[in-house]
Computed example of a mutant assay.
Amino acid sequence: MSSVRMDKWLWAARFFKTRALASRACELGRVESNQQTAKASRIVKLGDMLQITNEGGIFSIEVLMLSEVRGSAAVAQGMYRESAESKELRLKVAEERKAMLQGDGVTEGRPSKRDRRLIHRFRGR
C-alpha cells in the first residue's frame, strides 16, 4: 500500500472517532498536508507532514505508516511521530485550561439552600 485517503488515515490513526468526523474536519480546513489545506480525498503518503486540529489540540506530525483499518491505540500511535514543539504546546494549553477550571470555583449542579441564602444576601434581597 503506497497511499491512503486522508479521512481513512485520520480515522485509522485515531485522531477522530469516525470517518465522517475526519471528513468534516477536512471540509472545515482543520487538516493541513504539507502546508496546504487537505480535502478528505487527498492522498496521504509516507513522510507527509500533517497539521491536525481537533478537541485534543493542534498536532504537528509526520506520517510513518499507512493503514486503512483501525487498530489498537498502540498501533495507531506508531503510525505517526509528533514533533516536540507540538507536544509542548499541547501540554501547555491543557495545563492552562485545567488551571482556569480549578480557579473558577464553579460548583456542579444546583445551589444548595445555604448557597441560595448567600446569593440573596449578596444581591441585597
Rank of each mutant, 00 (worst) to 15 (best):
H120A: 11
E68M: 04
W11Y: 04
Q77S: 02
G47S: 01
Q77Y: 00
L21G: 01
W9P: 03
Q102D: 05
Q35N: 03
G124C: 13
K98H: 13
Q35W: 03
N34Q: 15
Q51T: 10
I61H: 00
K98W: 07
V75K: 15
M65F: 08
G47L: 11
T107F: 15
A73Q: 11
G56T: 02
M6N: 06
E95W: 04
A40H: 09
R97D: 15
R116T: 03
R5A: 06
R116H: 06
S112A: 06
S72T: 05
A99L: 14
R14E: 01
R30D: 11
S41G: 15
F15T: 06
L66A: 14
A94D: 08
C26Q: 02
T107A: 04
K98R: 15
M65E: 15
N34F: 13
S23T: 15
W9S: 03
Q35K: 05
W11P: 05
K8V: 04
M6H: 12
A40Y: 13
G109V: 15
A40N: 07
S23Q: 09
L64T: 13
V44R: 01
V63T: 04
A22T: 12
N54A: 03
L64I: 09
A76I: 11
V75S: 15
S3D: 10
R42A: 15
I58K: 02
S83W: 00
D115Q: 15
G105M: 11
T18I: 06
M1V: 03
E55P: 09
T53M: 05
A40D: 15
R19M: 01
F59K: 00
V31M: 07
S83D: 01
E27I: 04
L91K: 14
G57L: 01
R90G: 04
N34H: 05
E95D: 14
L101A: 10
V4Y: 14
L64Y: 06
F59C: 04
Y80Q: 05
R116W: 13
R114H: 02
S23I: 09
M6L: 06
M79S: 01
R81E: 13
I52S: 01
L64K: 08
A13E: 07
N34R: 10
A22K: 07
S3K: 12
K92T: 11
V31G: 09
W11V: 09
D7H: 09
A94Y: 10
S2F: 10
R121D: 14
R81W: 11
Q35F: 02
A22C: 11
L28Y: 02
N34M: 05
V106W: 14
